[in-house]
């Protein structure tokens, strides 16, 4: 999947995460600000990376503002932001279901 322009998903409510994806030339960078950074920052980044990898996104700058979201929310917001940033609207639910646990 190709990131064509910046796009976001999520809110700043507690237990949610805002994921913003911006185009990049190469590589994945993640700037994370989390209310549970010290305990879960590493795991949140890993969740975002895993979702991007599953969507075959290799060049993107991620800005994430987390308010204590659970893993399922992090994945969902990342996927939604990616589809928006790539202008893809034919959601492949079966594909997503197959790797989302």
């Amino acid at each position: 999947m190709q990131i064509k322009h910046a796009a976001s998903a999520g809110t700043l409510e507690s237990s949610d995460i805002t994921i913003t994806l911006k185009p990049a030339d190469s590589g994945v960078t993640i700037a994370l600000d989390s209310s549970v950074q010290k305990q879960f920052g590493r795991q949140i980044k890993a969740q975002i990376e895993a979702a991007l990898k599953a969507l075959d996104i290799t060049a993107v700058n991620v800005v994430a503002t987390d308010k204590g979201a659970l893993d399922c929310t992090i994945k969902a917001r990342t996927i939604a932001a990616a589809y928006r940033a790539a202008d893809v609207q034919d959601y492949n639910w079966e594909e997503i279901n197959s790797w989302i646990n």
């Binding site: 010290k38 305990q39 879960f40 920052g41 590493r42 795991q43 659970l70 893993d71």
Partner: peptide, 8 residues
């Protein structure tokens, strides 16, 4: 639910 938290 939360995952195992890393040590502070």
């Amino acid at each position: 639910i939360t995952g195992t938290p890393d040590k502070i």
